[in-house]
């Protein structure tokens, strides 16, 4: 049993191209193989079934008998899910960006990348080290602040994160900073007290800086499976998430769960992380993401 490793190494692209190649028939087998490709991309059972159902109906309605055309349809289908009702992200000033997510997904690194990006666009940026919990989290953010050459507001390890944010906002206001980016400690969404702490931070921002637009980005690791949906649900409830940043897409994971998240929670994907360096961040582009899913 389970001697599938060899089979597994077959390239999915090769397989899909074969599945969807010219002249192949549209039949149950084809849909099963498409289903497999979606599941392997972490799209999840429910959303996969929905997509396949809709695909089946469309091929019937539009009398499509050729597999190659199905590829276009499928890409279109996913693209529509991702783009539906999405307003483009606009960087305004002043803006406060709160970065949240579970442990180790890439929050602090993403802040470094975002700060770099916004500075390149001519904005003044400040970092706020509100992860006061994890060992050396503050030092880590400081290294990034030095790298991108922007100010950072920090307290000691173990201090109250909401009060660091408070200080950060006062300082940003006084200095007329365009974009304030707040790091927070990684927290699993099922930990009530930690989620309450986040709610408190969010409140401080709304109360102390009502002139600023607030964006709350949930950082998700592309290697995460179905649990990401649960993460998005609960973080959305607590912190009013406005967008998703999908990291570690430079690996082999597909991050297909964001399709389910968009479909179910209507959270737009804003950026993707594709490495550990300062430049390894891109604005999310639905078209290339869709084609990457089937690579």
């Amino acid at each position: 049993m389970l001697n599938f490793l060899q089979k597994f190494k077959e390239n999915l692209t090769a397989k899909l191209n074969e599945v969807l190649s010219f002249g192949k028939k549209v039949d149950e087998e084809l849909f099963e193989e498409l289903e497999e490709a979606l599941i392997l991309a972490d799209v999840g059972v429910d959303t996969t079934y929905k997509i396949i159902q809709s695909l089946k109906q469309k091929t019937k309605e539009e009398k499509i008998f050729e597999a190659s055309k199905v590829r276009e349809l499928l890409a279109q289908e996913i693209y529509e899910i991702l783009q539906k009702d999405v307003e483009p992200f606009v960087l305004t000033s002043p803006m406060v960006i709160l970065i949240v997510g579970v442990n180790g997904v890439g929050k602090t690194t993403t802040i470094g990348k975002l700060a770099h990006l916004y500075k390149k666009q001519g904005k003044s940026v400040m970092m706020v080290a509100a992860d006061t919990f994890r060992a050396a989290a503050i030092d880590q953010l400081e290294v990034w602040a030095k790298r991108v050459n922007c100010p950072i507001i920090k307290h000691q390890e173990g201090s109250d994160p909401a009060s660091v944010v408070f200080d950060g906002l006062q300082s940003a206001k006084a200095r007329g900073i365009d974009v304030v980016i707040c790091d927070t400690a990684g927290r699993l969404h099922n930990k009530k007290n930690l989620m309450e702490e986040l709610r408190k931070i969010r409140k401080v921002i709304d109360r102390e800086y009502s002139e600023a637009r607030v964006e709350t980005f949930l950082v998700l690791d592309a290697t995460t499976g179905q649990n990401a949906l649960q993460q998005a649900k609960i973080f959305k409830e607590v912190a009013d998430i406005t967008g998703i940043i999908l990291t570690k897409l430079d690996g082999t994971a597909k991050g297909g769960i964001v399709i389910a998240i968009k479909e179910e929670l209507n959270l737009p994907i804003r950026y993707i992380g594709i490495g550990e360096g300062m430049e390894d961040l891109q604005a999310f582009d639905a078209k290339s993401f869709v084609s990457a899913i089937f690579q």
């Binding site: 599941i39 392997l40 991309a41 972490d42 290697t223 995460t224 990401a228 769960i257």
Partner: peptide, 14 residues
């Protein structure tokens, strides 16, 4: 390995 890993766990582990 992170327990939340999805389908890619096999590629990583192998």
């Amino acid at each position: 390995a992170d327990a939340m890993t999805g389908q890619d766990a096999v590629n990583v582990a192998s």
